[in-house]
Amino acid sequence: MSGSAKDSILEMLTHAANKHDFSLDITLNMKGSLITGTLVSAREYFEEMSGKFEGGNDLSKAISEKLLDASKQNVEQAEDVTFIHLKNTRIYCGDSKPTPSKSEFLWRGRLDQTDGFFIGKISED
Rank of each mutant, 00 (worst) to 15 (best):
Q73C: 07
N74E: 09
E104C: 10
C93V: 12
D21G: 03
E124R: 02
K52A: 11
I9A: 11
L34T: 04
D25H: 01
F118L: 08
L106I: 12
E54P: 06
K72E: 12
I63V: 12
K52W: 00
S64W: 02
K66R: 13
I63Q: 13
K66A: 13
S96Q: 00
M49C: 15
A16C: 09
I119D: 09
S41L: 08
E54Q: 09
D95G: 06
D58A: 10
F83H: 14
L24G: 00
F46L: 02
T82A: 12
H85E: 06
G32W: 07
N88F: 08
F118P: 04
D80Q: 07
L10Q: 07
G120S: 10
F46D: 00
P100V: 07
L34Y: 11
N74F: 12
R108A: 12
T14L: 05
D125C: 08
L86V: 05
G32P: 03
K19Y: 05
V81K: 06
I26K: 01
F46G: 01
D58L: 15
V75T: 10
G55S: 03
L59I: 07
F118H: 11
S2N: 04
E44A: 15
A78T: 11
M30G: 01
D7W: 02
E44I: 14
P100F: 05
K102T: 12
N29W: 05
S96V: 08
S103Q: 03
C93I: 14
Y45W: 14
G109A: 09
E79N: 13
I119W: 01
